[in-house]
């Protein structure tokens, strides 16, 4: 029969495995998650200037966790990239937004940009071109699973695939329609189960241990047969009361 602690230990292992599986599932939703570490912001060294707006607000306003943009998890966000390329600068082709969780990319949205090259208006104005890209960004297929604080990276990529500009910012995705997301529900249930397990640990230990028994009852004296004596030969203990003589029954 399986003991109660054994069942609990196995249950705990199952819970840990489930928790790890959920974390992995959340962290690996995109097959294109090639990045293991969140990229650092790339300074706009080869661009004259670049910026991105999130529903009209510059993303640099949300560069800390405390100033994260608050959105609904299923909301579509209008993101506008704009940049100015110097003469001989990179050929920007793609604007991209990526969301990260434990260093893995969980969401990637990208659009092609359009660059209009402008000849130098004057000899001292070395403007190569202006470009822009417009994106309707959303958390994607995991809308009902994901809520919470996430770091996003907005970047501009040139035709060689190199990132020529990037900036990190934060969003706080609220659960859809004020209903807790799937992960929150799972975590709350798991937390309640573990709290209950800790609160009742004393009871489970009592159940698992055998009842503490008192000292064994004194054994009744049993006659020991004398060596070589027959079955009728008995030796009474020295402190035993003398046996009553068998009364003769007279008819």
């Amino acid at each position: 029969m399986t003991s109660w602690p054994g069942v609990r230990r196995r249950g705990r292992i199952v819970q840990l495995v489930v928790l790890a599986a959920v974390a992995v599932l959340v962290a690996l939703p995109t097959a294109s998650a090639t990045s293991v570490n969140s990229p650092k912001a790339v300074p706009a060294a080869s661009l004259l200037s670049a910026n991105a707006t999130w529903e009209g607000k510059n993303i640099s306003q949300a560069n800390t966790q405390g100033s994260a943009f608050s959105i609904s998890a299923n909301q579509q966000i209008y993101v506008n990239f704009s940049y100015v390329v110097p003469v001989g600068g990179p050929n920007v082709t793609v604007a991209r937004i990526q969301a990260f969780y434990f260093g893995a990319v969980i969401s990637t949205d990208q659009v092609s940009t359009v660059t209009r090259f402008v000849p130098g208006l004057a000899p001292d104005v070395a403007i190569g071109g202006r470009g822009s890209g417009v994106m309707n960004w959303s958390l994607g297929t995991f809308t009902y699973l994901l809520a919470g604080l996430y770091q996003l990276t907005a970047s501009l990529v040139d035709s060689n695939g190199s990132t020529v500009w990037s900036e990190n910012f934060f969003i706080d995705a609220k659960a859809v329609d004020r209903v807790a997301s799937g992960l929150i529900i799972f975590l709350l249930v798991l937390g309640a189960v573990e709290l209950w397990a800790i609160a009742t640990v004393g009871r489970s230990v009592r159940k698992a241990r055998p009842k503490r028994s008192g000292p064994p009852p004194p054994k009744q004296w049993e006659p020991t047969p004398a060596p070589g004596a027959g079955s009728e030969g008995t030796t009474p203990p020295p402190d035993a009361a003398p046996a009553e003589p068998a009364s003769e029954v007279t008819p």
């Binding site: 570490n37 994260a68 990260f100 434990f102 604080l149 995705a173 975590l187 798991l190 709290l195």
Partner: peptide, 30 residues
């Protein structure tokens, strides 16, 4: 030791919940 295991799971749950409620970012790997 039973309760220690439960506490460890509970600690992980609390961290994930704090992230889900928007008070902590777990975006960086390290």
């Amino acid at each position: 030791s039973n309760a220690a295991g439960s506490g460890a799971v509970l600690g992980a749950v609390v961290i994930f919940l704090i992230q889900q409620f928007g008070f902590l970012s777990l975006s960086g790997f390290v």
